[in-house]
Design a protein around this nucleic acid. Structure first.
Lengths: 129, 129
DNA sequence: AAAATAACGCAACATTGTTGCAAATACAAA
DNA sequence: TTTGTATTTGCAACAATGTTGCGTTATTTT
């Protein structure tokens, strides 16, 4: 398989995402990087980080794609886990937060083969009340 | 309040969505309409249908916005319900289906004021196995 | 230090969604 | 049926987001 390299762009982007309490959009990452690299490079780095299981993708209720690290996952289980936790999408500040602790339970009709779940709650986050 | 009118575009778009077993994207609606109306008109009609509670918006796991009618909702409760049911997003055919019957249960940390939930499961749908 | 190849920047393009404005039309009232 | 008017539409223009190809740069291996 193809081997990946550590570059300034990758290091900085991963640091940003790891240090952020909320999921970040491409646009937010770009403005935080302050011209360190090209727009396209950010897309490609994010893609790489996802396949390396350093980062996962979340979509907020408006369809905006955001990226978040998975703080609760140990490096050992990174390659097997499917990010099956819930997210909270704030209607006011539009921030997306991972909620590691809530565990939804559900029953699905048979014939459906479930691989992943995306459980996003929306409303008002603690900061916005 | 502003009064809405029935037009050919609105009628056709609603018919499409109502007759589809899966949620439809703007692009899918556009190609199904076969040039009946402008791209922009479709956006505006969909907006209207949502505020009239004829249709609701779902986002699939890739962030693609889709539109679906809510078959299980009686016309009386349309104005109060929040479409709090689950969706299934197929990895293969990318179709999004409403799953009226599954009722997820969960517990949220306090401080979070939950208004709506978007519960999307992904995997392989019955048609793709 | 050199070779191999992964990653980058740039330009160009595709898709998706939004806005302003003038023209068309739906519909209620005359 | 005709008329008046507010709603809806089409068009053009734009903004935001995402993708692809290709020549150049930079990291890693030998």
């Amino acid at each position: 398989m193809k081997q990946t390299r550590n570059t300034a762009a990758k290091t900085e982007i991963l640091k940003l995402i790891n240090h952020s309490p909320v999921a970040l959009s491409h646009a937010e990452i770009q403005s935080a990087l302050n011209g360190l690299c090209d727009r396209v490079t950010i897309y490609r780095v994010l893609e790489r980080l996802i396949t390396e299981d350093e980062v996962h993708k979340v979509v907020n209720l408006e369809g905006v794609v955001k990226y978040a690290s998975c703080h609760s996952c140990s490096s050992e289980e990174k390659h097997i886990h499917t990010h099956n936790h819930a997210h909270f999408s704030c209607e006011k500040c539009k921030e997306v937060t991972c909620m590691e602790d809530i565990e939804p339970s559900f029953k699905v009709p048979k014939n459906y083969q479930v691989h992943e779940m995306n459980f996003t709650l929306s409303g008002i986050c603690p900061n916005c009340r």
